Amino acid sequence: MCRSIKTLRPPATPEATDDDMRAAALQYVRKVSGFRAPAAHNREVFDQAVDDITAATAHLLAHLEVRGRK
């Protein structure tokens, strides 16, 4: 997968920011689509995918139960 995506859950990252989540989502969409930057006719769907994955990441991190953490 994409090696530049870092782990965002605690304790690896004490508190992931919106920017951290968006950067990870962007890297994921770039990897999956094969485009570093989409052509104009694909920009809307590319940006929507980044938004959707950012939201899914925020939801995941907000609801994970990390055991052994105080």
Rank of each mutant, 00 (worst) to 15 (best):
T13H: 11
T13G: 01
T13M: 11
P14W: 08
P14N: 12
P14T: 09
P14D: 12
P14M: 12
E15Y: 08
E15N: 09
E15R: 10
E15H: 11
A16F: 05
A16V: 04
A16C: 11
A16E: 02
T17L: 10
T17K: 00
D18K: 13
D18N: 10
D18S: 14
D18R: 13
D19Q: 15
D19C: 00
D19L: 11
D19P: 02
D20L: 10
D20E: 12
D20G: 08
R22L: 05
R22I: 07
A23M: 05
A23T: 11
A23S: 11
A24M: 04
A24D: 06
A24H: 02
A25F: 01
A25Y: 03
A25P: 02
A25W: 03
A25H: 01
L26W: 02
Q27E: 14
Q27W: 03
Q27C: 15
Q27M: 07
Y28F: 15
Y28S: 11
Y28W: 14
V29I: 15
R30K: 14
K31C: 05
V32Q: 05
V32M: 11
V32C: 03
V32S: 07
S33H: 04
S33F: 08
S33I: 08
S33T: 15
G34Q: 07
F35E: 13
R36N: 14
R36S: 13
R36F: 12
R36G: 15
A37G: 10
A37S: 14
A37P: 00
P38L: 01
P38S: 07
A39D: 08
A39C: 02
A39W: 03
A39I: 06
A39F: 08
A40W: 05
A40R: 10
A40Q: 09
A40F: 06
A40H: 12
A40T: 12
H41F: 09
H41K: 09
N42S: 05
N42V: 00
R43H: 12
R43K: 15
R43I: 12
R43F: 08
E44C: 06
E44V: 13
E44S: 15
E44G: 09
V45H: 05
V45L: 11
V45G: 01
V45N: 06
F46G: 06
F46I: 04
F46S: 04
F46P: 00
F46H: 13
D47Q: 03
Q48W: 04
A49V: 01
A49Y: 00
V50N: 05
D51C: 03
D51I: 00
D52G: 00
D52L: 07
D52N: 13
D52P: 00
I53M: 08
I53K: 04
I53Y: 14
T54V: 01
T54I: 00
T54E: 06
